[in-house]
Amino acid sequence: MRLTEADPKGLVRESYAIEGITPGECRSIFMDWALSLPVGLSTPDALRALIAHYALDLPDHPMSEVLSDALTAPEQPRRRGGRAARVPGQA
């Protein structure tokens, strides 16, 4: 995947150029990036392209962590609450 496809607005590129950027600011930029991806573009492929281009050279940059975290699958949700959780013997 070409870098211009993976980062069509240059948001990730610009985040790496901002000196002193915080992890929170990187997460905000990431959300803007994710929402700006064209329909049908593979998000994991775009993330891998961005990581290969930016994060490998700058592993300590906050955006590198955000991009890497985005490739990690979230934990399966667990049921919380409800009658079965409050009443013993109910399943």
Rank of each mutant, 00 (worst) to 15 (best):
Y16Q: 00
I51C: 09
S64W: 01
A46T: 13
Y54L: 04
A85S: 15
P62N: 12
P88E: 06
M1V: 15
G81Q: 02
L47V: 12
E14T: 02
M63D: 02
L3N: 09
T43G: 03
D69H: 09
A85R: 12
G82I: 01
E14L: 03
L50R: 00
P8E: 06
S64M: 02
I18T: 11
G24W: 00
C26Q: 10
D69S: 14
D7A: 06
V12E: 02
P88S: 09
P44E: 06
T72F: 02
H61E: 07
L47H: 08
A91M: 03
A52V: 01
R80V: 03
V66I: 09
M1N: 06
Y54G: 00
G20T: 03
A49M: 12
S28E: 11
S42W: 09
P88N: 09
P23I: 14
E75I: 01
A84G: 04
V87K: 07
M63K: 02
R79I: 10
S28C: 06
G24Q: 04
A46N: 13
E25Q: 14
P88H: 01
R78V: 06
V66P: 01
S64G: 09
L50V: 06
A34G: 00
T72M: 04
I29T: 12
D57P: 00
A70G: 01
V66F: 01
C26T: 09
T4I: 10
Y16F: 12
